[in-house]
Structures are given as structure tokens and as C-alpha cells.
Write a protein that binds this DNA or RNA. Sequence first.
DNA 1: ACCAGCTCCTGCTTGC
DNA 2: TGCAAGCAGGAGCTGG
Length: 283
Amino acid sequence: MPELPEVETVRRGLAGALVGATIARVVQRRADLRFAFPQNFAARLAGRRVEALERRAKYLVAVLDGGEALIMHLGMSGSFRVEDQPIGAFHHPRGAPGPHDHVLFLLSSGATITYNDPRRFGFMDLAGRDNLADYRFFANLGLEPFDPALDGPALRAMLAGKAAPLKAALLDQRLVAGLGNIYVCEALHRARLSPLRAAGTLTAPEARRLVAEIRAVLEEAIAAGGSSLRDHRQTNGALGYFQHGFSAYDREGAGCANKGCGGMITRIVQGGRSTFYCAACQR
DNA sequence: ACCAGCTCCTGCTTGC
DNA sequence: TGCAAGCAGGAGCTGG
């Protein structure tokens, strides 16, 4: 699914249509996604004005007037599309909602925002807007990668004493929030750090390097509109293209692109998930 | 407190 | 060509 860059791309794509708009009606086409929708979900959104659209880790947060915020997570396969025409049986360009179109937001502007999610690992929820830090899925999240508080010493401190592999530690949303399998692989490759390293063994220079490469790869990916492997689309339907910028992820057998390294990218499995790295230069 | 493994679900890719 | 197995960007939860 969308990791931080994909969610940020979606946020930027939705913001133009959503921020300042009023939700005229919500069509909720099934009772649950990953979780059941909150009670009276559609009714609680009707008539609300969207004051801001924010991102926390891989979550989207639409701040509404009236005291609530709409929390949205795209899971593995969620996407939004924005269309200028209201969806109706005879008015929508495609005639009607398609397969896996689970939620439709009909805005008073006439635009329609549709949430599509084949695997249904995503979810939507409502929470009090004034105490979002206490929201159950936010309370344990770690630092945002772009939070100035995340620097080499801070990262090293949070990894101190951890025997878990570096790869697993970076996927742990309680430490740094927003990274997923792709960008962890990419950041470790760029920083020339082995995904197998015990997290607690990072030196100060290594931690500093890793923070810098995490930020660099996320920035580049956001600029490219995210990575489209299978499901990710920007809200206008366009593909992201950062997958062409991968140096390790999904490149098993390819030559290592790191300067001066003649190694090859290999695939291993950690915690049941693929890790791509160069054993020659990632130490 | 920590960690590995399981689980939710669909659909694309791979290999026989 | 057909079919089944394997695998996928997440992450909460369970049991050890």
C-alpha cells in the first residue's frame, strides 16, 4: 500500500477539491472495510465543512467543523479519485460506482470523491478533532520522518538496546511513523546499512546518515507522485513514477547502483516480508 | 515488555 | 492455455 509518499501524494491531490468544501452527502456502500464504520458514519459527515486535510504517518485526517475529524487509512490497496461530475445512475461518466467503490463523498461543489479499495484493508473512522493525539491509532505513533526532532542522536536513542534487525525497527510505526517495506529498503540501501544489523548497534555517524537518506528518499518519492506498483494512483488517476527510481526494492539480480560497489541486489525474507539489499556494500 | 506469526481480502504473477 | 499456488505497499491482535 501506500506508504508515506503515496499518502502525501493523495493528500495533495484531494486537498484542492476537499478543503473548504462542504460534504453534501456520503454514500457508504458496505457496513465495513477493515473495521466496521463508526455509528451513523454518513449522517455525521453530512453538512460538515472540511477545514483542513492533514496527514499523520500513513493516515489522512480531514478536520471538520462541528468538532470531529475524519480519519482515513488506505490499507494496502485503497485509492481516491476526484471527479467533477456528481455520481448518479445516469450522470456519472462511468454510469455508476464500480467494483470496490466503497465510499462516495458528494460535495456541494458538485465534485465527487470516491474511495476504492479492493482488499479492504483500509478503514475510515471519526474522532474528536481537538484531541487527535489521543486517538487510539495515533497515541502510539512515533516521530514523523520530517519532524525536526528526528535527527541522528534521536534515532540512535530510540534504537538503543534493540536486538531486532534494523529493517524491523524501521518498520515499527511506534519509532518512526510512515515508513513501509519499500522505503525502508531504499533508505537502508542508500545509507549502505544492512537490514540485518541489530538496530542497537548503529553508530552516531550511521544514524545521522540513515536519517538523511530516509528524508531524501521520501522527498524524491513525493516529488515523483509516489510509487505505483499495482494499486497506487494519484487522485486524478495518474500513476506515480518513483518506482523507476528504486535502487534496491524489487530489483533482485540487478547490479548495485551505489558508487564504487560492484555488488548485486539480493532478496531475502525478514519477518515474512521481502527485503532487497546489497550484501556487498550494506554493512 | 517484547516478538513472531496470524489475520483480514482481492487480484496479479509465476510456475508447472 | 489453464490452473493453483504464491505473493503484494499495512498493522492490529494473539499467544508464547
